[in-house]
Design a protein around this nucleic acid. Sequence first.
DNA 1: ATGAAAGCGCTAACAT
DNA 2: ATGTTAGCGCTTTCAT
Lengths: 338, 338
Amino acid sequence: MAATIKDIARKLSISTSTVSYALNGGPRSVPEEVRVRVLAVARELNYRPNQIARSLITRRSNTIGVVPTEASINLAVTPYFQGVLNGILNTAEILGHDVLVYTRYDVEKPDAFVDTLLDGRADGLIFLAPKIDSHALNRLAAEIPFVVTSDERRNAPNFGCDNASGVRKVVDHLVSLGHTRIGHLAGNLEMADGIDRCEAYKGALASHGLPICEDWLFEGHFTSQGGYNAGQHVFATKNRPSAIFCANDDSALGLLRAAWEKGVRVPDEISIVGFDNSPVSSASFPPITTVRQPLEEIGAAAMTALVNFIETQQRPDGISFETELIVRDSTTRPQEDI
Amino acid sequence: MAATIKDIARKLSISTSTVSYALNGGPRSVPEEVRVRVLAVARELNYRPNQIARSLITRRSNTIGVVPTEASINLAVTPYFQGVLNGILNTAEILGHDVLVYTRYDVEKPDAFVDTLLDGRADGLIFLAPKIDSHALNRLAAEIPFVVTSDERRNAPNFGCDNASGVRKVVDHLVSLGHTRIGHLAGNLEMADGIDRCEAYKGALASHGLPICEDWLFEGHFTSQGGYNAGQHVFATKNRPSAIFCANDDSALGLLRAAWEKGVRVPDEISIVGFDNSPVSSASFPPITTVRQPLEEIGAAAMTALVNFIETQQRPDGISFETELIVRDSTTRPQEDI
DNA sequence: ATGAAAGCGCTAACAT
DNA sequence: ATGTTAGCGCTTTCAT
């Protein structure tokens, strides 16, 4: 049986309060001599403070809860989750917090899920690109501090990138190369990034006076498989765009693979642009022109702001990070111009 | 203030125990009529069970702790962590557990770290490819169930791959292509996978009667940068191997980049083999010949075994998963033979 | 300066 | 069948 402060107190014939103060270095002062003896006995008994008992009183767990998009399968293999989580973990280490990743999201009973989020194990929450319904989110607001990543539509501090300006850079780049037939492989249209990039794409085309062709709009769901499936379709049609802007690198990669299999050369026959600047985008062949969004900074900023939120009870402002166009070898002038 | 079972009990003029039993559906039965009223009031008061208070009594948190290699920086961007964590999270969801990722490993005070591991928030631990000193691990064994990934030297159930046979497949493949000058870009030699693959490499060469040349042994630390640095050195020397087996894909990728920059063609001038079958290995140019280890299965098996361990108090056996050689385009016959 | 004791929210043994 | 009560291990107020 693990030793408790009671055991220490009994052994030294002093009170548990003195032991507690000695162990924690306050808030009440304890004579040095007593302190030393307490620490000695603690070590001797192999005493470990029980954080659960402490949390029950202090209402602090020093733990931050991370709620994935949907506590879904295979989330740890998506570059978005990886990048943001990396920033969260790095910052958690610095700030002295641990990170609880919630799973068990049951679409059937969202209420039960909300219950677990509020069960006292986390001091605050970070929702990663949430799909959870806004109603549930709003109800949470009264009960626990939380922030959100990559979704400015929520009534919560948001940490993400400026999708509109990022997409504009992509379209400007393609237009400057001479492209006029620009398609879009959309992401998951249930998520803010998916919607925002799609709308930004349409807006950017319009501002260049280019027509939006519904036939050149595909859904890639942010996945490699989604990009591949779309590619199977695109590369079988005659009237296809000369360039496709993909909502993320993973789907761009799938599209690239489909092009390869169909014998469509990239970038000579079709230009492809991704989004994220994930590791695969630079390692692929050809390396993919993409938009860098600072995923790690997004995670770090969300974490920092949340801890601040918890400590001050002052709701922080969100941050929209700038993006950067990274031109690689998957884009060139359209074929007709060569 | 959040409602408690006391509030519900008071409102209904019944005892807290009845409320507790009604809410939990046992272990004592409660008349249906009472149960319904309790649930109604609970909903009305927006009652949420406090898991912390429950944990204090039950000594169960339904939370599994994951201890990264070293609660180090940037771990979420390594394919190993990603793959294994993915398996852990997927399985956690199924088994009804959440996952607490520990950070705050301070090399200066390992004891403090051990304290946090035992502070009651986790029912069991998974050490990912641990570097933590064995002494500390052994002390933990008496206090909490834990398993380990990718380290069979520990006195704990281990979930990993059969490095020896995986490496043998690599060497056999290279030898069958005609290579006799085979180098090794080692991983982190403080970690079991790094050591095991290096030793397996030496053993496999020996079994083919090939000499081991210390000049062809490099350290890549499992990182892309490490591989790149080694490449800077290798490709500047005349007497270099005709093939290099890298301890993982990330370092192979760095080596590939260095080769590219130095104008050394892959695979014509040098064959490169990786390990892991990470996403980049298939997307890179050329796609890298590699060894697939089932990272997700490793994580899933570790999680399943640990939960079982916790529930039965029976220490489970570890599992060594088989590997598979995946031949791609980064290996070919050595130049002299062409 | 120190000890006694209340109590965080819950479970479960014990009592009726 | 249901209520009373003693804790789980800790922090902190109150009393001395």
